[in-house]
Design a protein around this nucleic acid. Structure first.
Lengths: 153, 153
DNA sequence: GTCATACTTGACTGAAACACTCGGGTTTGC
DNA sequence: GCAAACCCGAGTGTTTCAGTCAAGTATGAC
């Protein structure tokens, strides 16, 4: 399973949605501002999330998105899978490497790794992230390791 | 930890090395032929493996590579780390998303995922792969699920 | 009914990474 | 001194990423 900023943004956005969804639909503009994610990019992501039925949309003024089901029923794996391209992580079969015995050997290894990652992400529910987030005392500064170049832009 | 074909090729090549290393150094040309990996590409990979001291080289005719230590002391994580670029998988700090509380929240999640993957790969030793490989009855055909398009090329 | 809000869609793009290749080296056994 | 092998760095086509842009459509408020 591939993991890029797309997946990370999606999880962050979904978490924002879960945190602010108590009073009706949440507009993307708000998420964009709070999480500093480009609005256009969010639109792209939420298009996929909607098609995967993780969120539902309300159009028109006052509209926005809300979770399609309870946060306890949405795993991080669900979110990542919704927005990332489904990649055959083994790639056995797509190339002319992987032969005879050797083929199956490393193949099995990558399949197992895939399961490991998948199980981990499947086990983390959106509701848990919400809990963790809410229980945090405002903003204990642990982001001290931010590098110079990242501050510049 | 990123995982591309580079990492997969490296593991396959190291396994080939472990399997054929009993009678002196193994030439890349042999690995290239057996595993169908381009020789030039192998040279690139083995340059990194050598710099990370996972293999040692013997130059001149009859030369090649051999493992720098026992296969039981080399994990898949070692190999992957040697050839893949070390990526900050959280990417918190490299972007202007991830703020205040939200920042730490997803940040922790990705750090945990990283550990999960790392622990798994660290737990698999090259010697185990060799064992698995040797215990296989020649080539029990389990590659039946190869898709049409992959046969073409 | 018009207007602003907000979702919806698809095409487009610059930059980076990937997966190699190429052309030259150097070392060393024979 | 030849050829087998390692060594190394630059170059390159393709794909993906990350994000933008421009055009929609639906709908609540007035």
């Amino acid at each position: 399973m591939r993991l890029t900023t797309k997946g990370r943004f999606a999880v962050t956005a979904m978490l924002d949605l879960a945190l602010h969804g108590s009073q009706g639909p949440v507009a993307l503009a708000g998420i964009s501002e709070r999480q500093k994610i480009s609005l256009s990019y969010l639109e792209q992501l939420f298009g996929k999330l909607r098609r995967r039925e993780l969120v539902e949309s309300v159009r028109g003024p006052g509209g926005g998105y809300h979770l399609a089901r309870d946060a306890s029923l949405v795993s991080v794996a669900d979110i990542v899978r919704a927005v990332e391209e489904p990649i055959d992580s083994t790639q056995c079969g797509g190339r002319e490497n992987c032969h005879d015995n050797s083929r199956c050997m490393t193949h099995d290894l990558w399949v197992e790794l895939n399961h490991t990652v998948y199980d981990f992400l499947e086990g983390v529910k959106l509701s848990q992230l919400v809990e963790r987030q809410r229980s945090k005392p405002v903003n204990l500064v642990r982001g001290t390791r931010v590098r110079p170049h990242s501050m510049a832009v």
